[in-house]
Design a binder for these strands. Sequence first.
DNA 1: CTAACATACAACCAAATGGTTGTAGATGCT
DNA 2: AGCATCTACAACCATTTGGTTGTATGTTAG
Lengths: 116, 116
Amino acid sequence: MVVDAELSDTEVDRLFQALADATRRDIVTRVIEREQSVSELAEHYAMSFAAVQKHVAVLERASLVGKVRRGREQIVHGDPITLRRATALLESYERLWHQRIASIDELLAEDESSTG
Amino acid sequence: MVVDAELSDTEVDRLFQALADATRRDIVTRVIEREQSVSELAEHYAMSFAAVQKHVAVLERASLVGKVRRGREQIVHGDPITLRRATALLESYERLWHQRIASIDELLAEDESSTG
DNA sequence: CTAACATACAACCAAATGGTTGTAGATGCT
DNA sequence: AGCATCTACAACCATTTGGTTGTATGTTAG
């Protein structure tokens, strides 16, 4: 399962952009729990079917979900790999932070040994 | 360090929205590594100072960074707590996924014991 | 074959976004 | 005091976004 492939700036833009909407995040949780058709998803929201269709399209462009035709329905499923990549990205920022804290601590330790 | 406080939909919207721009992500990494003034940040980008100012404002509204006045400068620093919350959120989606996989595995195991 | 259903997609609209320039207010240096 | 620097903020503009309605197309059930 390839997870560490570098994401381009544009891909990351799309990824976070896709996550920056409550309806879309809700769709993601729903299809993670159980893959389901677009119209089935649409039932839960106070907006037109076309609007939900667009949200799914945004998630698809971000590779957070995929669609597979089943008869006349289009079944939406979650993409765990992209989710993993998004998390990994944020974790790398956190790692940066911890590294910075660590080097500050080092400096403080040196300081103490020279002043104490 | 409070990390698990529930974020409202709007807050999460702002959070991911703020991360959905390469310039802003770059600003975040820079201020995580070392806090610095807005104009210092602005030097690195091929856009106006005002544009960078706006990006910082977006990050601030999302609580990804904070600003502190120092003389005539405004020093921007990263906010690790918000970063942690963002990561935690994505991790919870991943957890959902693993739970789903686990229950599928259970079903398969039951199936095998009845058919084998 | 026909009716109902699920989807696709275009056209349209208001609001938000990401950029610009210009002006004005604080602060620091000499 | 006077000038340069850093920031704030308004006004403006093009593009994107998130929604709508309407129409067309493919698919399944009777």
